[in-house]
Amino acid sequence: MQTDERFTDATWPASPEKATLEGKNKYLGFWLFLGGETVLFASLFATYLALKDKVPNGDAALAKDLFELPLTFVATMLLLTSSLTSVYAMYHMKNNHFKQMQAWLVITVALGFGFLGLEIYEFNHYVHEFHHTFTSSAFGSAFYTLVGFHGGHVAFGLVWIISLMVRNAGRGLNLYNAPKFFVASLYWHFIDVVWVFIFTVVYLMGMVG
């Protein structure tokens, strides 16, 4: 099957992301990568849990002094919703609706930027109001490494999705780029999976004490 072949709605395969050998391999290889990412994030979680609230003196801010429910809640809603909008994008991809797919991806990216903006505000707030920095304590180092690594993944995901959208804007959907869009959406869901544990383990459990 020619990967740059033009498809009609009727000839477009049911699972375009896996219709070519390259697509199949990409899909499998990407999950191997996600398995590795799981180990990476689990190690960062382990480090955070071991170093939580390990500060040099009584003046330093602890988890329960830092975290606030409303900010975490809004950030969580933004990221969870962006996961659904990328599902909508893939739904339109499977129906060969290129424009709708792009539109939902734009919404996904906008929500992602909202999340990232909140995170930047949050870090800035901790540094200036609480003097909670990367080097101020073991707790600070572990916190910024874990949450910052996740934020870095969000930033990378945004660059990735935007590049795909720009690169394929004039090309439309074919079996060459369908797996690319699909894999990027999987990555976006994975970012959400990690965030579910971050908001639970870091923020909610941090506020409980």
Partner: peptide, 27 residues
């Protein structure tokens, strides 16, 4: 199936790491 193998192997290694850091590592 293969995908689940990848993910759950990653998860197994990851959870053991968390368990270790929570139990036998102390600072």
């Amino acid at each position: 199936g293969t995908i689940a193998l990848f993910l759950f192997s990653g998860l197994a290694v990851g959870l053991i790491t968390v368990l270790v850091f929570l139990t036998i590592v102390w600072i």
